[in-house]
Nucleic acid binder design. Structure first.
Lengths: 205, 205
DNA sequence: TAGATTGTTAATCGATTAACAATC
DNA sequence: TAGATTGTTAATCGATTAACAATC
């Protein structure tokens, strides 16, 4: 409801709830409780109830939540009750893996183009896609009104391409390059860097 | 110093600082300030000083931080001043991409084995590695004293293999499967799920 | 020295938890 | 009805920020 007032940390948890709920639905379950959800995702029941209650009253005292209904609501809230076209920039190993990944379709995303700046790669096929030239990136992204990009390029060129993506109207970037990207305030970035993630655990070993 | 008392949220930021510092070092820079680091990584200068000061006094008033020295200290703190052997479980596209990724070596990690449960994949080569049978996972991991694993399997088998990894003594798991893993308290998990990460941004579109 | 920047304190801000009335 | 579980409040806990003395 009051979209601007929801803390980002709550938004980051909703996709995890959604994923768990979809798994329960796949297993044929019909209802769940904040307690059961919490056990599954490793979050306290109180926090799950609090998070969900920011957006409405989706549960029933005594019986908990209807899984299908809560899935619908979370998909609405997260705006994944529709399909988003997504591009991949960088046709290396990671770009290939993402291009072939089967897990996007049922979670709201549809890869539609792949770009690279390597003349040897441009024109080659990845599945149904033909690798396109990053020289045409801005034009192509604008024309197709793409809002989401996944960036799987070396760190050295990532910021330059990011600037192009922003210029083309992209508002969400999933960054696989091992570098902090700088973007305007209205553009969101999520970072995936396996070495960084591993380094968050070695401290405890 | 008081290792147990450092909040995890600070630990999660240190690898980001380290990455930025290594980049500055690569660019030939010798010193930096909390302000400059903050600008690069998108975090306030005050927070960076506070985070770093949890571990000692590594800066100098008036001049800031020696980049090389701070890199050394962060590497020590994060225990990546050494090389960690890492295994990959799951030889699909993502497993292949990680096996070929060149970014681990200079950040403290060394992939040493790859496993899969698919009879058609076992015995095949990925670069220098031969894909091994997950049936031998526990034995092999114990013998090599492996503490870190990257999991790139379908969600359906991820928890089962996780239990095996834990049994074999693995204490840190980088999980690419789209499912929340349940592990004992002394085992760390980091989740990488591109669809989840994308869903954290669509809310704002 | 003057200017710059740290390390640290105290204040502020925000998130989590515990508890329970409401109610299915 | 009795039992279960939500939604919400208030209390607790923790993280961030602002400010500045110390000092290079």
């Amino acid at each position: 409801m009051n979209a601007e007032k929801i803390p980002n940390i709550i938004i980051t948890r909703l996709p995890v709830y959604l994923r768990a709920l979809q798994r329960m639905a796949d297993n044929g379950l019909k209802t769940t409780s904040s307690q059961e959800m919490g056990d599954r995702v490793g979050i306290s029941a109180a926090q799950i109830r609090k998070d969900i209650s920011q957006f409405g009253e989706f549960g029933k005292q005594g019986t908990g939540y209807s899984i299908d209904y809560l899935i619908d609501k979370l998909r609405e809230i997260l705006k994944v009750d529709r399909m988003w076209d997504v591009i991949i920039v960088g046709a290396g190993d990671m770009g290939h893996a993402l291009a072939r990944y089967q897990g996007f379709a049922n979670r709201g995303f549809n890869v539609v183009m792949i770009f690279d700046n390597d003349k040897n790669k441009i024109g080659q096929k990845i599945g149904d896609f033909t690798i396109e030239d990053t020289a045409n990136l801005v034009e192509r992204v604008k024309a197709a009104d793409i809002k989401i990009a996944m960036l799987t390029l070396p760190a050295s060129v990532a910021q330059g391409i990011t600037d192009k993506l922003v210029e083309a109207g992209v508002r969400a970037i999933l960054n696989y390059a091992p570098i902090s990207l700088s973007v305007p305030e209205n553009v969101k970035v999520q970072h995936i860097d396996p070495a960084t993630h591993l380094q968050r655990m070695t401290y405890y070993l």
